[in-house]
Structure formats: structure tokens, C-alpha cells
Simulated scan of single mutants.
Amino acid sequence: MLPSADPGPHEFTVVQHNVSDENPAPYRVVRVVLGAEPDLIALEELTPSRLPAFRSALAATHPHHTTVGTVGLWSRYPLADSGAVDIRPRDADEGWERGLRTLVRSPHGEVVTYVAHLPSVRIRAAEGYATGWRDESARRLGRAVAAEPAHSRLLIVGDLNGTVDDRGRRPVTSLVHGERSRFAFSWPARLPLARIDHVLARGAVVTKTWTLPETGSDHRPVAARLRF
């Protein structure tokens, strides 16, 4: 995918990737995402069997990390106050955990960072597009973000299973902003048609967004540069 025009100096780079719970090649994922030289790496669909491989492969460059359920964040900088964020739809299983919050202590100041994986939109014979779970999860995430102090720098990174114009994601997208490059499509990986993986910010400007090569997942990684 073509990147947008070079926006000039930046202070922070973030990579977001749904690695796929069926992906047999975690080390390939790591090679690709490290090519963007990120400060933060957010991953979704982490499985217990492959999580140790990601921890080992990223330890040298991103020694600080936190995981909750199937989502995780790796950082060059220390993390604090890490914990789960409840974005589980009411009818989901008790073990459904796809949200975390942590505080990144970067050289540019503290950044409250959320990693989230919203439910997929399903197609059902009786209902057509079934967005109820996704929309409920977005509302829960939006409430958590809205409760943050207004002065705090904030990132939301994740597979949000919708584009920036999707009305079901407005509880989130009304609070943070991204960069609307036409070329940074992340899904499906072989012929990307939409960006459903996002890096969104408050108190910072996302100056550039682009996609990285395939990793064996059905999503492509999305990289973003930010300026505070």
C-alpha cells in the first residue's frame, strides 16, 4: 500500500496488527512490524501457545509489555497502571477479554493508551448485518475513554472492525482522531479494501498512516506516526 506524503518530523511511531489466532508464523509478524521502527506495538488475537514467541522475539527492542486476554502492547518505554478494560458485550462468554489500558511513560510525556479488539460484524440470514455486539463494545470503550481527564494525552489502538465513518464506532471516534489516508487499507490482507485497524489520538496529531507487508494474517499491519 502507498504511504501518504511525508508529513515531516515526528516524535512517535505506533504499529497496530491483528495477528490472527490461526497465524503459524509469529516471528514473521515480528520481522514485519519491526521494519517500521515503532515505539509501540499493539497486537490482537494473541493465543496462549504463541504469546511466548512474541514475548521472546520483542524482548530486546520492546522490553516493556502488558497483555489482557487476547490483546497486548509492547513498548520501548516503561508502562504503568496496566489493567483490563471491560468492553465485553453482555451475551459474550465470561472469558471474553479484548481491552486493556496502560500508561506509557515516553520521553515526550505520559500517554494513556488503550488497546481494543471490537467484535466482528456478522452476516446472519435473519438479521443481515449484525452489528449489535460491535456497537455495544464500542459504547463501553467510549465510556471508559470519556472518563479520562480532559488534559491527558491519549491513544486508542486496535482492530475496531469498522472504518472511521462507521456510525457504530462514533462513541469512540468522537473522542479521538486519526489520519484519513486513502491508501492505508488493512483488510482483507490479500486485497485490502478498508481500514478497520486504527491508531487514534487525543492531544497528539497522527501525521501519517500506512500499511506494512503481509504477515500470514488476514489483516495487514497499520503503522502511524504521531506528533505531540
Score class of each variant (00 low, 15 high):
residue 2 L to W: 08
residue 5 A to F: 06
residue 7 P to Q: 05
residue 7 P to K: 08
residue 8 G to C: 09
residue 9 P to I: 01
residue 13 T to Y: 07
residue 14 V to M: 06
residue 18 N to Y: 09
residue 21 D to I: 09
residue 23 N to W: 01
residue 24 P to H: 10
residue 27 Y to H: 14
residue 31 R to C: 05
residue 33 V to L: 13
residue 39 D to W: 04
residue 40 L to G: 11
residue 41 I to A: 02
residue 44 E to M: 11
residue 47 T to R: 12
residue 47 T to V: 13
residue 48 P to K: 06
residue 49 S to P: 00
residue 51 L to A: 13
residue 52 P to T: 03
residue 52 P to Q: 05
residue 53 A to I: 01
residue 54 F to C: 02
residue 57 A to M: 07
residue 58 L to E: 01
residue 59 A to P: 02
residue 63 P to L: 02
residue 69 G to E: 03
residue 76 R to E: 01
residue 79 L to Q: 11
residue 82 S to V: 07
residue 83 G to Q: 10
residue 88 R to N: 12
residue 90 R to P: 04
residue 91 D to N: 11
residue 92 A to I: 06
residue 94 E to H: 10
residue 100 L to M: 14
residue 101 R to K: 14
residue 102 T to Y: 02
residue 103 L to W: 04
residue 106 S to P: 11
residue 109 G to D: 07
residue 111 V to I: 15
residue 115 V to L: 08
residue 116 A to W: 02
residue 117 H to R: 13
residue 119 P to S: 09
residue 124 R to Q: 14
residue 124 R to F: 08
residue 125 A to C: 02
residue 131 T to M: 09
residue 134 R to K: 15
residue 141 L to P: 09
residue 144 A to C: 10
residue 145 V to H: 02
residue 146 A to M: 07
residue 156 I to Y: 00
residue 157 V to C: 07
residue 157 V to Q: 00
residue 160 L to T: 09
residue 161 N to M: 05
residue 165 D to Y: 04
residue 166 D to Q: 07
residue 171 P to Q: 06
residue 171 P to Y: 08
residue 174 S to H: 13
residue 176 V to A: 12
residue 177 H to E: 14
residue 178 G to K: 08
residue 179 E to V: 04
residue 180 R to D: 15
residue 180 R to P: 12
residue 184 A to M: 10
residue 188 P to A: 07
residue 191 L to C: 08
residue 192 P to K: 07
residue 195 R to T: 08
residue 196 I to D: 11
residue 197 D to T: 04
residue 200 L to K: 06
residue 202 R to L: 11
residue 202 R to W: 09
residue 204 A to W: 05
residue 204 A to F: 06
residue 205 V to P: 00
residue 206 V to D: 13
residue 208 K to P: 00
residue 209 T to C: 10
residue 209 T to G: 01
residue 210 W to E: 12
residue 211 T to M: 05
residue 212 L to F: 03
residue 216 G to Y: 04
residue 221 P to R: 01
residue 222 V to Y: 01
residue 223 A to E: 03
residue 226 L to Q: 02
